[in-house]
Simulated assay, not measured.
Amino acid sequence: MKRRDFLRATGGSGGAVALGSGVAAGQEETGTTTGTEGGGGGGPTETVTVGPGGSLVFEPAELTIATGTTVNFVWDSNMHNVVPQSQPEGANWEGEGEQGVTFDAGHEYSHTFTTTGTYEYVCTPHESAGMVGTIEVVEELQSGGGGERELHEIGAPIHPHWVGAATILMMFVSLVFTFYVLKYGESPNTGNTGGGE
Rank of each mutant, 00 (worst) to 15 (best):
T32S: 05
S77Q: 09
R4D: 14
E197N: 11
S174E: 03
H152R: 09
V71Q: 02
P88N: 06
Q87H: 01
G53V: 10
T193C: 10
H107D: 07
Q27E: 13
T116G: 00
L7E: 07
G39W: 04
V57Y: 05
S187Y: 11
G43E: 05
N189T: 14
T112E: 03
E108Y: 03
G133L: 02
V101S: 00
T134S: 01
V48K: 08
E186H: 12
T193P: 05
E59C: 00
E153V: 03
G155P: 08
E153T: 12
E186Q: 12
T36M: 03
D5K: 04
S187T: 10
E127Y: 05
V48W: 09
S143V: 15
N192I: 10
F172Y: 14
A61W: 01
V23M: 04
E153R: 11
S128M: 06
L182N: 04
E150Y: 11
R3Y: 12
G155C: 07
P84G: 01
A156C: 07
E186Y: 11
F73K: 03
W162S: 04
F73N: 01
G195E: 15
L56A: 06
T190I: 10
G90K: 08
V173M: 13
G12N: 14
I158D: 03
T114R: 14
V48S: 05
S143G: 12
M131S: 02
W75I: 02
Q142Y: 08
T36E: 05
R8A: 06
D104K: 08
E98S: 14
S86I: 09
T115F: 00
F6S: 02
T67V: 11
Y180G: 00
G194N: 14
G51N: 05
G95W: 08
V173L: 15
G41W: 01
S174C: 04
T34Q: 14
A16V: 04
T34S: 10
I168M: 15
T193V: 13
V176P: 01
N189L: 15
V74K: 12
G43K: 03
A24Q: 14
F172G: 12
R3W: 14
V83Q: 12
L182F: 13
G95T: 03
S174F: 10
F177V: 15
C123Y: 09
T64N: 11
Y119M: 04
T178Y: 08
A61G: 03
E197G: 05
F58M: 01
V48I: 15
